[in-house]
Design a protein around this nucleic acid. Sequence first.
DNA 1: AACATAAATAGATTATCATCTAATTAGATA
DNA 2: TATCTAATTAGATGATAATCTATTTATGTT
Lengths: 195, 195
Amino acid sequence: MQLDKMISFYKAIGDPTRIRIVSLLKSGPLHGQAIAHKLGLRPPTITHHLKKLRDTGILYSRRDKNTIYFYLDAKRLEFMATAILRLGDDPLKQEEMYMSETDQLKVMRSFISREGKLTRIPSQLKKKLVVLSYFVQGFEHGKLYTEQEVNEYVLTFHEDYAAIRREWVMHQFMYREQGKYELNPKEMWPLVVKR
Amino acid sequence: MQLDKMISFYKAIGDPTRIRIVSLLKSGPLHGQAIAHKLGLRPPTITHHLKKLRDTGILYSRRDKNTIYFYLDAKRLEFMATAILRLGDDPLKQEEMYMSETDQLKVMRSFISREGKLTRIPSQLKKKLVVLSYFVQGFEHGKLYTEQEVNEYVLTFHEDYAAIRREWVMHQFMYREQGKYELNPKEMWPLVVKR
DNA sequence: AACATAAATAGATTATCATCTAATTAGATA
DNA sequence: TATCTAATTAGATGATAATCTATTTATGTT
């Protein structure tokens, strides 16, 4: 992680209002107006704060009809909060979500066709991570991609590009900033399979 | 930990200059002028930042002649950095370990003699914590003690120094590293009584 | 006692930022 | 299409804070 991303994160949560928002979202997603009401602040103020929190990656959102719900990404929060503790350390760090290579192969054989297409998205978390990790390696590290480019790549192996894109971001394989997509360092991935 | 302490901490490290100071001190203590020189800033600016960092408790200082060396308290840094992850379950924990002042007084009256000696170690957890918290305050924050010094202090109020020492460490009142003992920040104590 | 050095304080300047009101955009529904 | 609702953007204001120079304090040394 770059230093300025780390600083932005600590600056973002170094504010009473934003801490309160994080605290609220810990117990579940909420939409903007609900947050504004609970905190006694105006909607534009909430937008302002949500933007800062979202920029750090600890928040993601989903629209349901007219209402946008904001979710806290607990894993990302933990990763970011402990960044200062890793200052100066070797980048090779975490490995919690483990699966044996043979099991990974089994998963890939059951979800990827002979033509290399993803037949369906696994619903079981670990299995899903295996295929997400496998396909995300088609991107280059350090390169920025437009949403269009991401979609086009996904379409070479699966039709539901929006779902795959969302999963990559949600599970920290990729990072989105101002409409651009970027591969996260492998240390941030919840699971890595050989390709 | 109080919310405002937590916010001050994140605000403190949410600044490029202060992150750089923390980063420098990770590799060892430095004095003000050295930091100023390394960062290309003026000494008053460094004083300003050190004050903010010191207020969070992650820094302590020792004077040698007329130079003051600043040290990073790594354990405290870790405790503070992960505070946001404990948001919400903290009040529960504290409540669990809460005891009214009058009840604390009762406990102390029944286990501490008129001469200030601990007659026996309470077996009930909460009561034990009350007396442990009471006596541990004979130590100074930020100071390192040898096992010998700890034993000698315990002997002023109780004969079984090994048991008391072990309890202090086990319940996070103190921290042991390479044979040295150090008082943990009060925020880490499971319970605090007035002395 | 006089001097030297490191740190801290005081006060000024400039930049950043939290919040608001008013206006606009985006999506859903009738 | 017109209308409703939620979110965002634009722009203003007041507060906070990062940095500097100049001065003072604290401690050591000659």
